[in-house]
Design a protein around this nucleic acid. Structure first.
Lengths: 211, 211
DNA sequence: GGCCGCCTCCCCCAGATGGGAGAGGCGGCA
DNA sequence: TGCCGCCTCTCCCATCTGGGGGAGGCGGCC
């Protein structure tokens, strides 16, 4: 075994739930071919530990304090474009999936996945092979057919989701109420929604907004 | 150790994420005074296993397939009003907390809690002592000061959250558009919201609706 | 029996929302 | 240079939404 130690897949875990980290760590460390070299409870710690250890695989939760999973993906890919990142999260909105994969994550897996699937995902990503279940991949493809919202539209959408009126949105963004209406209208069109409330529901489902 | 076996706190874990069950199980089984006697991945399995094992404590996730945590709490309390249930979830809306506790759950803890807190919660509940962190307890108290929505209002709220118009809601519930409006109006009043979209945002935050 | 909460329905009306069409300025990109 | 996407703003108008009343039927509870 000692002769094989240096061949082990070195894994970093980043998740804000200690319980999840424990579970993953137990699973990983039981495997003869992989080991956990570090654990992070938030995005900044994940980044720091990545630079320190340069692991073969980093398993990332999407929702984390300080810096979310997507932000970590972007930063890590700047540091090392060959980094192997596996997203492991409960969020299955097409926007999340699309963003992570298009920014360079090698895999995307859901937290309710059975143990064997999680382990094979880690192995696949460690060998630089992409891993995405068919349902997840299908969502990423779906998303590609849909129009993207502009930055400004996302600003407006967030306020709409908070229940703000057009007038209120205009005030907060320092634009005219008419302009706010224009943005809302194009949001409705792009999300294929009839009312602002439906737009919020759709945006939620797609992962365009959080909470 | 054999002499003490029968004194161990017998725990059932119910959570739809295998990873979380693993993590919890590892934590629990490392303790000399407790052991996991069964694990469930959905609400119905949790019920069946409860009746089979009658554990000292059952740790329950709120969001589970087939039957959610609250439904399990209600059913278990019917079977055994002295049951000791600990809710462990990511949802911290006051409605969830209030409902679970008022239906007889002994404890409510969040998944991002540190390991020691989780273990002491299990111990507390096993001794029939309530366990709720101060933040969680505060939310339950907050909720008590707020007006409850009626069944019908919850039906309407759900459709509002899906982005349906009053006319659409009326059709689906087989009532007049005027009546739908009446319900929406009282929802707005009770949730202290100005618009239906704001009502949805508030309802979301409070845990009155899911997804 | 009487009270009260819930659900149902009705009226009126000011203001917000959504749909259509157009237009100027600005920055990136070919 | 010209094109194009984005952000900004404008006008018009049908419809929806939200706020103010009121009222009848029904069931539970005291």
């Amino acid at each position: 075994m000692a002769a094989e130690l240096h061949k082990k897949i070195r894994v970093i875990l980043a998740d804000d739930h200690p319980v999840v980290r424990d579970g993953l760590a137990a699973m990983v460390n039981q495997q003869p071919d992989m080991e956990v070299v570090a654990e992070a409870g938030d995005g900044e710690a994940a980044l720091a530990l990545y630079e320190q250890h340069h692991p073969d695989v980093m398993v990332l939760d999407l929702r984390m304090p300080k810096r979310d999973g997507l932000a970590v993906v972007q930063r890590v890919m700047e540091i090392n474009p060959k980094a192997r990142l596996l997203i492991m999260t409960t969020y299955d909105g097409d926007e999340d999936i699309f963003q992570c994969l298009s920014h360079g994550a090698k895999g995307y897996i859901l937290k309710d996945a059975p143990r064997p699937e999680i382990l094979s995902a880690i192995r696949a990503v460690s060998e630089d092979r992409p891993y995405t279940s068919s349902t997840v991949a299908a969502k990423a493809l779906q998303r590609m057919a849909k129009p993207s919202l502009t930055e400004r539209e996302l600003d407006v959408l967030e306020l709409v989701a908070q229940g703000r009126s057009n007038k209120d949105i205009a005030r907060r963004l320092s634009i005219t109420e008419g302009t706010a209406k224009t943005h809302v209208k194009s949001i409705l069109t792009k999300l294929d929604a009839i009312s602002r409330t439906e737009a919020v529901a759709v945006a939620h489902k797609r992962g365009l907004i959080r909470l």
